[in-house]
Amino acid sequence: MNPQLTNPRADEIDAILKRLPFAQTLGMRCEVLGDEMTAILPFQEKLIGNVAIRALHGGAIASFLELTAMLQVFLVSDMPRPPKPINLTIDYLRQGHAKDLYARAYVLKMGRRMASVRAEAWQENRAEPVTALMAHFLVAAD
């Protein structure tokens, strides 16, 4: 535990990522500053979906955004474990190039049973997102 951390749950985010085999397969990591988290997906050849145009696979981007949204809910809540997804909608706005991808998620509503979350992924320019996600998570314990 780093005593200088402004958010004690930041260390837990790191621990969750290390425990999740699929997050390791993607190779993603997160940087937490207070309640703000940026997820980073370093480029790897295996994330490619179309070799001809060297575009990232939509499924890899969606997986990355779903994990980002899930971790953001966890970060701003006091849940003992990450929430389960109910559904999600992904908008593919631009081609994901063979470069690192970044993402941030915003919890639009934290209810007693559900959380509504929006997440966006971008590359060179945050104002030009590659993909946007809207997801609902179950946050109730039962």
Partner: peptide, 21 residues
């Protein structure tokens, strides 16, 4: 390597998203 919940061993939703997409 696709597990998304280490307690239950269930594969991550993102794998299903990739598959169905």
């Amino acid at each position: 390597h696709l597990v998304g919940d280490p307690e239950s061993g269930v594969i991550h939703g993102g794998v299903i998203t990739t598959f169905l997409d």
